[in-house]
Amino acid sequence: MPAFTAADVKRLRDATGAGMMDAKKALTEADGEYDKAIELLRVKGAKDVGKRLERSTTNGIVVSRDGALLELDCETDFVAKNADFMKLAERLLEIGLQSTPADAAALLATEVDGQTVEKLVEGESARIGEKLVLSRFVAFDGSTAVYLHKRATDLPPAIGVAVQYSGGSEDAARSLAMHIAAARPRYLTREEVPAEAVETERRVAEQTAKEEGKPEQAITKIVEGRVNAYYKDFVLLEQPSITEPKRTVKQIVDEAGLTVERFARFEVGQA
């Protein structure tokens, strides 16, 4: 019988979140060696993570610091407000700030404490008992305003916006970030809209107009109107201001002397 004590079992459980019987079994298989027992539990945990791959991660948290945003998703709101889950999000954000990866995929590939961030997340997923997904990460430089929004007072922020800007004031930039949180723009200017997206809108608008029986001579104008409506929906500078609907965002930021360089908007559970 391998030599280990109840204190060894407790230490292993505290470190891994494993059940008592799983911890005892791991120590037995590892001949009482603590590090080997952890490895055995991690292997078991990795298998458990695989079983959770099809689960939906529609809850989670968006955290921010020093111009960076990170979204970490989970399955339930119970885990979303769990202290360990929130600490993990903050730790991942710190790793991102130190290593400055280009995106979430690069952050997942980053090495930390002898393992990749992806393996770190998998280990925490096994310990917590839910599928966890590091969905998005971005880090801006220069002047950046951030706004975090909670969907409910007892839950962590589920929407995060970062705006990199020059000129104007921090208050004006933060007000813009609040607009972005509510209005959900996808692009800064119409030049950023992919050509295929515009062509799709044109095609749909033309077909819709024909099916509605619109006169042939009016279709071109109708199509342009609907494409412009698409820009107003999804291009930030062309959107009506949330606070002053009769004015565009461009009019508001120009008046404030604010130049918007780029922005990011993360919302838990949304693509």
Rank of each mutant, 00 (worst) to 15 (best):
T58Y: 13
R151F: 12
F266H: 04
L72P: 02
G225A: 12
F137K: 01
S56W: 08
V43H: 00
L155F: 02
E94G: 11
N82M: 11
G142Y: 05
A271G: 10
R52S: 07
P194C: 00
P245D: 09
E170G: 06
T58C: 12
G60N: 04
V227W: 07
A15Q: 12
Y230F: 14
L53H: 08
P215K: 10
E170S: 11
V112L: 12
I159T: 13
V227F: 05
P157S: 14
A37I: 07
A80K: 02
I38N: 02
V163F: 04
L188N: 01
R151N: 13
D233M: 07
A109I: 13
Y187F: 15
A109S: 11
G129R: 05
D254W: 00
K44C: 04
E39Y: 06
M21R: 00
S56N: 10
V235G: 06
F85Y: 09
K36D: 15
G45W: 08
Y231F: 15
L107E: 03
D154L: 01
A7D: 15
G32C: 12
T248L: 11
E201K: 03
D233V: 08
S166I: 02
A68E: 06
A83G: 09
F263G: 02
A256D: 13
V133F: 09
T208N: 13
T28M: 13
L41M: 08
G167F: 01
L41R: 01
P240H: 02
I222Y: 02
G257Q: 06
A256I: 09
E216H: 06
A172I: 08
K232N: 13
E238M: 13
E170K: 00
M178W: 06
P2E: 09
T76M: 09
K51I: 00
V112T: 11
L40I: 15
I95S: 03
G96L: 07
L70G: 05
T144S: 06
I159G: 03
T200A: 14
G67Y: 03
K36T: 15
R127T: 13
A152I: 02
Y230E: 07
K131Y: 08
S64N: 09
L176D: 04
R265N: 03
R151C: 11
T259K: 14
S169M: 03
V249K: 03
E238H: 04
D254Y: 01
D22K: 00
T144L: 01
